[in-house]
């Protein structure tokens, strides 16, 4: 059984990423279950997706995973990664975008929240942390919309879900329109490289 939690800000594409993971698992013959945040929170609020992969439906009854049970945390935003950290199990891996998204409430108060404090807390708490510079990857791929696929690349490469980059790429190919494919393949590959980079450290 594998559990994965994805955390981000409404509009960052967590739903698509969690679907891709679930579909990749299904194509590998597994049973997959997800839970999504759909509704008001999609307008810039905190959103969380849960993905559970088992052999059969009985392995994973609850759509949301229990605390301390995630093999992998994919953080689309540092503070949101910290918020969902209690879901990560001991020894679990985390793939986190280093780019912070400032909530309007913080900007209004004149104090942006401290992104680096979130990142150092994550470094302290998670030995298997992969930091992904999604902003640089988006720039290199020429689209601000591929951050989620870059994170998926790192997630697949780190192996915590038992899915390979190749399998995710195949799922992407089946789902995305041809004109977006190249850009997304590139983002996936660069995300995977970010994992290799993290490993070398």
């Amino acid at each position: 059984m594998k559990n994965c939690i994805l955390a981000g800000v409404g509009g960052q594409g967590t739903v698509l990423a969690s679907k891709l993971i679930a579909q990749t698992a299904m194509e590998a013959g597994k049973f997959a279950r997800t839970a999504e945040t759909i509704g008001m929170a999609q307008r810039g609020g905190s959103v969380v997706s849960h993905v559970r992969i088992g052999q059969t439906a009985e392995d994973v009854s609850s759509p949301m995973l229990p605390l301390g049970s995630a093999d992998l945390l994919i953080g689309f935003e540092p503070a949101e990664a910290v918020r969902t950290l209690p879901y990560l199990k001991k020894g679990g891996a985390a793939v986190v975008s280093v780019k912070g998204v400032q909530p309007v409430t913080a900007t209004l108060s004149g104090k942006s929240y401290d992104v680096s404090a979130m990142l150092s807390y994550l470094r302290e708490q998670v030995p298997n942390l992969v930091e992904v510079d999604t902003e640089a990857i988006c720039e290199a791929c020429g689209s601000s919309k591929v951050a989620n696929v870059a994170l998926l690349g790192a997630a697949a490469a780190c192996g915590a879900l038992g899915l390979t980059v190749k399998e995710v790429e195949a799922a992407l190919e089946r789902r995305l329109p041809a004109k977006f494919l190249d850009m997304n393949r590139k983002a996936l590959a660069q995300g995977a490289e970010a994992y290799q980079g993290a490993n070398l450290k």
Partner: peptide
């Protein structure tokens, strides 16, 4: 019960108009 480490103060993030 799984006791979690005390995280740094998290920003509140209510939904907003896009």
């Amino acid at each position: 019960e799984t006791a979690a480490a005390e995280p740094p103060a998290l920003p509140v993030r209510p939904p907003v108009l896009c």
